[in-house]
Simulated assay, not measured.
Amino acid sequence: MSLLSAPRRAARVVGRAAEGIREDLDAAIARDPATDSRLEMALASPGLHAIWTHRLTHALWVNGHQLSARLISQAARAVTGVEIHPGATIGRRFFIDHGMGVVIGETAEVGDDVMLYHGVTLGGRSLEPVKRHPTLGDGVTVGAGAKVLGNITLGHGAQVGANAVVTKDVPSMCVATGIPAKVRTPEAGVDPQHALYDEPALWI
C-alpha cells in the first residue's frame, strides 16, 4: 500500500505545482497588457521568476532547510532584482510587475491576487524576533516605490499609491496615499484602484 501511495502523493504534488504555475501565468497576463503569451511571460518576467523561486525556498524553509533556502533566495535576488525572504508567506496568483527593487521581509504575509509594482518594500520596524512585517489581504495593490512598514494590516482590496509610506493599518477597500500615508474611503460604487487616479501626481 505504501509503495503505491508514494507515487500518488508525488503526482498530487506535481499536479498542484503545475496548477499554481498556470494560475501565476494567467494572473500575470491579466495584469500586464504588454504581453498575452504564456510562453513569453514564463521566459521573460523577473517577477514571476522571483515568485516561483520563493515557492521553492519557502518549502525548504518550513521544512528545516533554512540555509539552502537563503542561498537559493540570494541567487534569485541577484538574477531578478527581487528579494523575498524564504520565511515570507505568499498567496496564490501573486504578481510583481517589473520586479526590480522589491523587498519582502521574513514575517510578511501576502494574500491571494495581490499585485506589487517595482521598488515596493514590505519591511519591518522592529529588531525583535517577532511578527514585524506587514500583512496584505486578498486583492491588494501596492504602487511603485511604496514602503509598507511594520506589523500592520492592509485589508482586502486596499490600494496603496506610488511612493506612499504606510505605517498604520489600511481598512479594506480603502486608498492610502502620501508621506506619511493618509487613508481615504472612496465614494460608494467607486473602485479603490480607480480612486488612485484622483491624485495623478502620485503616478509621476
Rank of each mutant, 00 (worst) to 15 (best):
R9H: 10
A158P: 06
P171G: 07
G101C: 00
I204G: 08
I179H: 02
L116D: 09
R132M: 08
A69C: 09
A158L: 07
L43V: 12
L67V: 08
D97W: 04
D113M: 03
D191P: 01
L4P: 01
P200T: 04
N63M: 11
G143S: 04
P46L: 05
A188D: 15
L71D: 00
L154S: 06
P46I: 02
G111N: 02
A188N: 10
A59M: 03
I72W: 02
G189L: 06
H118V: 11
L136I: 01
Q74D: 14
V190A: 01
G161K: 06
D113A: 03
P46V: 05
L25A: 00
L48R: 04
A164S: 02
Q74T: 10
E187D: 14
D32Q: 00
H98R: 07
E109F: 10
P200G: 02
R9N: 04
Y117P: 01
V148R: 03
A28W: 00
P186A: 09
R8I: 12
E83W: 10
G105F: 09
L196D: 03
M1L: 11
V160Q: 08
G47D: 10
F95A: 15
R77T: 12
I72S: 09
A164M: 01
G91S: 08
L149M: 14
V130G: 00
V103L: 03
H49A: 14
D138H: 14
L4S: 13
C174I: 03
G15Q: 13
M115A: 10
E83R: 07
G101A: 02
I104L: 02
N63K: 14
L154F: 02
V62K: 15
S73W: 01
A108Y: 00
E199L: 08
K147M: 02
F94S: 14
Y197D: 11
L149I: 15
R55N: 07
M41C: 12
S37M: 11
Q193G: 05
V120Q: 03
H194C: 04
A144Y: 03
R38H: 13
P86E: 14
Q193Y: 12
I204M: 04
E40W: 10
A18D: 06
D198A: 13
A108P: 10
V130T: 11
D97V: 12
E199W: 00
D32F: 05
V14K: 12
V13Q: 15
I29R: 08
T89S: 15
A50H: 08
T185M: 13
A162S: 15
A201S: 14
L67D: 06
A188Y: 02
M100V: 12
R16N: 14
D191C: 01
Y117G: 07
T80C: 14
D97P: 11
C174V: 01
T107N: 05
Y117F: 15
V142E: 00
R125P: 05
A144E: 13
L154G: 00
R16C: 04
H54C: 03
H133V: 11
H118M: 09
H85S: 13
S73D: 06
D26S: 15
A146E: 06
P33H: 05
G123W: 00
P7S: 14
A76H: 07
E19L: 15
L4K: 12
W61T: 03
G87E: 11
D191F: 03
G105S: 08
V140G: 06
I51M: 07
H194K: 14
A162G: 13
L43H: 09
V190R: 06
G143C: 06
G123Y: 03
G145L: 08
T185D: 13
A88R: 01
